[in-house]
Design a protein around this nucleic acid. Sequence first.
DNA 1: AACACACCCTGGACGC
DNA 2: TGCGTCCAGGGTGTGT
Length: 266
Amino acid sequence: MPELPDVENFKRYLDATGLHKRIEHITLTSEKVLHGVTRQKLAAALTGHALSRTYRHGKHLFAELDDGPWLMLHFGMTGFLAYFQNLDDDPEHDRLRLDFDNGYHLAFVNQRLFGEVGVVEDPAAFITEQELGPDALALDEDAFRHVLAERRGQVKSALMDQSLIAGIGNVYSDEMLFQAGIHPKTLISDLDDAAVHTLYAAMMNVLNVAIDKGAGSADLFDNLPQGWLLPHRDEGAKCPRCGGAIEKVSAAGRGAYICPQCQPEP
DNA sequence: AACACACCCTGGACGC
DNA sequence: TGCGTCCAGGGTGTGT
């Protein structure tokens, strides 16, 4: 579920495992993930260099190659990073593997091939070119208010629009709206100051707690505090706040899960 | 401008 | 057990 919290934890994982090790060789198993770079250029950019630091913006993860260009990773709908020594532990759907000179490997795992691997000279320029909005975690409440003010339409689609705010996807937007008690189809123009304040607080809480509780790992659901929708995000499941039945509705072109009691229809 | 929809790809879940 | 259909957490492009 690679949205901002997941990617943030992938970044921390990479920081803890893959930095400052010389890349002897890369293994690219699928060219479909390449984004604006050829196999040859990717190999040339990586081989012989080490990842020196990382940077995350929204759902994009960047890793600098010594003091040169940056490796760009985007996970699409599926994926994670895996660091391991024994090739027997190489996960299925490993699309790009960095083979380090210490005998370990770092794999970009991406089952559905919607992920992207690229090489960019400058993450800031890339973010501008891709027309990505500010990272969700970097938004203060005034900026959030400002972003919403220049947008009409439904609140869920605004939260998920990467050109407005980078990092929020379908799952975590559901969680934010649930915690804020706002129906996803509510028009932004119908949110009063108090509702925007509540939504901002929910956004920050969801992002920070999800990161803290292990977003991107399998045990996230077990670690989450009571009252989160996420583990109950299923049609007919029990709402963790009121006990009512969770419903699936269509919003922003995706399946959205809501509690009709806690999030009354506008 | 905002929205619905088809599409990209793989594979798990579900119904028969 | 086997097979077809539907659906999934991202993003893009098209038509309205």
